[in-house]
């Protein structure tokens, strides 16, 4: 037994090109996207034409933004159903208050972020401190947010301001502006999650709140932070959406809820919490978008597109379910 005592450093730093090993989710979803693009090139070149890309990319970016918000909540083992209300409220605030007046845009944007902050704090407080189930808390908040949508707009759509249309819907160097916003969020989020004390604590708490508490980390505050950031990202997405759509309705956020969860799952993040994959989530959003484009180009009706999305989602979950089993011990312990 004494030969087991090995005082040399047992660690061998694996030599790879990248400092981080590639995550399974990243490989899967990136490979899927590449395969899809190649299939598109052969079968439906129009789906990958410049025009099609420019038209659909902004919407893919919005799904990605909302997905990144959902990702943060999912990392804490939660779930944010108020995404729809959050986006809708931001859309309405950004169009209704300025009512076409460029000068009023900045105050409107600030008000929108104020609402988002309040909603995030409410969600975070209910889930982190009152220990309400995330589904219930966010359903309730969602209804309140929609209430605010009608308080603000009365349900009547207004035309977006030209300035916002230029900022959100415009293009620079032929690239839609939404892409720049998404890229900025992605860079910041990846940096904070992987490179800062706060981000690493955040991931550890999500991966095992009990262990995090045992070393004295503040679990509740970090959980609350996730909901706040999610709301802020939804708000950003909503403001961009208000600029991209000419006359947005009061329910503009509804179609974003399910894709926001789907891209998180497809990106390889476990719904049980823990490590999050922002880049994979964004690629998953591109993948879902391309899937729709492809289906559209080959003449599949809208209906079949959602079926394809459901199958892709189911397939994605099945691929990652191996990871999930190692996490099931967490579900066994009932949270009080």
């Amino acid at each position: 037994m004494s030969q087991a005592v090995d005082t040399t450093n047992g660690l061998m730093q694996r030599r790879t090109l990248l400092p981080y090993p590639l995550a399974k989710g990243f490989v899967t979803v990136a490979a899927s996207l590449i395969v899809l693009i190649m299939i598109s090139l052969v079968l439906a070149p129009s789906a990958v034409s410049l025009g099609a890309l420019k038209g659909s990319l902004p919407f893919a970016c919005l799904i990605a933004l909302v997905g990144l918000g959902q990702l943060l909540v999912v990392q804490q083992g939660g779930f944010d159903l108020s995404v729809a209300g959050a986006v809708s409220l931001a859309v309405v605030v950004a169009t209704h208050y300025p009512n076409g007046d460029n000068a009023q845009l900045l105050p409107a944007v600030l008000i929108a972020f104020g609402f988002a902050l309040a909603a995030g704090v409410l969600n975070g407080f209910l889930v982190g401190f009152v220990k309400l189930n995330a589904v219930i808390a966010t359903i309730g908040t969602n209804a309140l947010l929609y209430g605010m949508v009608f308080v603000v707009s009365g349900g009547v759509p207004r035309i977006t301001t030209p300035l916002l249309a230029g900022i959100a819907g415009g293009q620079t160097f032929g690239i839609p502006h939404a892409v720049f916003f998404l890229a900025a969020v992605l860079v910041v989020m990846t940096f904070v999650l992987k490179k800062t004390v706060i981000g690493r604590r955040f991931e550890a708490i999500g991966a095992n709140p009990l262990a995090a508490r045992a070393v004295g980390l503040n679990v509740r505050t970090h959980q609350m932070m996730a909901y706040v950031c999610a709301q802020l990202l939804c708000c950003l997405a909503g403001i961009l959406l208000a600029g991209i759509t000419r006359e947005p309705t009061a329910f503009q956020g509804d179609p974003l809820l399910l894709p926001s969860v789907a891209v998180v799952v497809l990106g390889g993040t476990s719904l049980l919490g823990g490590r999050g994959f922002p880049i994979s989530t964004v690629i998953a959003a591109l993948f879902l978008n391309q899937l729709s484009q492809f289906a559209l180009a080959v003449g599949v009706p809208y209906s079949a597109q959602t079926i394809i999305q459901a199958l892709a989602l189911g397939f994605g979950i099945a691929v990652y379910s191996v990871r999930w089993t190692s996490n099931t011990t967490k579900t066994a312990t009932k949270e009080d």
Binding site: F79, L258, V261, A262, V265, L271, L272, P301, Y302, S303, A304, Q305, T306, I307, I308, Q309, A310, L311, L313, G314, I317, A318, S321, W324, T325, T328, T331
Partner: peptide, 24 residues
């Protein structure tokens, strides 16, 4: 090994698609 949310969410999207497939 699907969580309840994941499984029924995929079903949610799929069923919506089926409805549209049957009636546009």
């Amino acid at each position: 090994n699907f969580t309840a949310i994941a499984a029924t969410l995929a079903m949610y999207i799929g069923l919506q698609g089926m409805s549209f497939l049957l009636r546009n």
